[in-house]
Design a protein around this nucleic acid. Structure first.
Lengths: 186, 186
DNA sequence: GAATTCATGTAACTTGTTACATGATTTA
DNA sequence: TAAATCATGTAACAAGTTACATGAATTC
């Protein structure tokens, strides 16, 4: 359900096409909400039926037509209600098949396990780099677009993502050490 | 798809009813995979059709009949293939509507935001307590059931959960400080 | 005596994923 | 000139959520 409000929230900043919404999700919301492009188009259609957004076709010369979505007053109201009303339970559902495999690690073999955890670590380090790119572009784009006030909140979410990723890397390091010493034992 | 393999993995340890599988998910896998009981029953039914598990009705005097599921050799094979074949992308999908609200924090107001982040912190501290209970019972139950070897891997996943939760609490502390100083500015 | 847990699910609905389709424009 | 990106989706399927149903046994 929150995909809907993520879209509405972004449309509060400015009108956008489905494609642009997808790109914006990828750069600014990827560390808190993953979506597939196909989901965005479906949700936009639904929201149009419910009069939360409207769309305008813009004809461009030499380029494809653009279908630009705007938020309606009704949509704005729905968004504001959502954002202010936090659920009782604030814990995000977890579904991590990597760590589930680790749980059943007996079957994997120590050598293989070591390899996969090292790979995991590298991926997390990659995420850290992506995050610093996102952080930089957050600063630039919010100044450009006159959204300095939003930058504060964006930065809070980036801080949180960074901390999570660093925790993963630390865990990986410790786990690699534990497995190496276990290997030594046998 | 991993719910299926979680169930198969648990059935490798011992035969269980749907209810027991649900309980076991809650105690040992809750920090990596959230499920609803209704999902478990549906998946068990599907797996029975695919001959990955079988079920036996056990009649108890004075109590309800138990429907006990066992893994088949085919199920064991499917599980082992899954556990050994890590996907290319090891990053778990994230869907966190709490932090998404923080992203759109402008609309919320600093006072309210502060309240919600403090509440978030308390919930994470509660999770930490649950985790230490889980850790304790992990040690006890694996000794009872002769699963000392599995305990090592279980502990790895508990370590990871603990690190994540501590990172959340640290973030909450820093964020509370940031918001307080922002409040002071205005 | 009331609430919770044990024990089993079904049905309807909402979300999320995967695969496919089209064709221009831009970059290596 | 080949690959990637821009730009728009649709259709089918898989997975997750919510609400409901039943009723015994146990604990407060």
């Amino acid at each position: 359900m929150s995909l809907r409000y993520g879209l509405l929230g972004l449309l509060c900043y400015q009108r956008m096409t489905g494609y642009e919404l997808n790109k914006t999700f990828e750069t600014s919301l990827q560390f808190m909400w993953n979506v597939k492009a196909s989901q965005i188009y479906r949700e936009l259609l639904k929201m149009q039926h419910e009069k939360l957004v409207t769309s305008q076709i813009e004809i461009q010369d030499k380029k494809f037509d653009r279908k630009v979505y705007s938020i309606t007053p009704l949509g704005k109201k729905a968004f504001e209600e959502w954002v202010k009303k936090f659920p009782q339970d604030l814990l995000a559902p977890i579904r991590d098949e990597f760590i589930m495999r680790i749980f059943f690690g007996e079957t994997i073999g120590l050598e293989n396990l070591l390899f996969e955890i090292q790979r995991f670590k590298k991926q997390q380090e990659g995420e850290l780099e992506i995050l610093s790119v996102v952080e930089k572009s957050a600063k630039e784009s919010s100044i450009e677009d006159g959204l300095e006030e939003s930058l504060f909140y964006w930065t809070l979410t980036i801080n949180r993502a960074r901390k999570s990723i660093i925790a993963e890397i630390e865990w990986a390091n410790e786990t690699i050490a534990l497995i190496k010493s276990k290997k030594g034992e046998s």
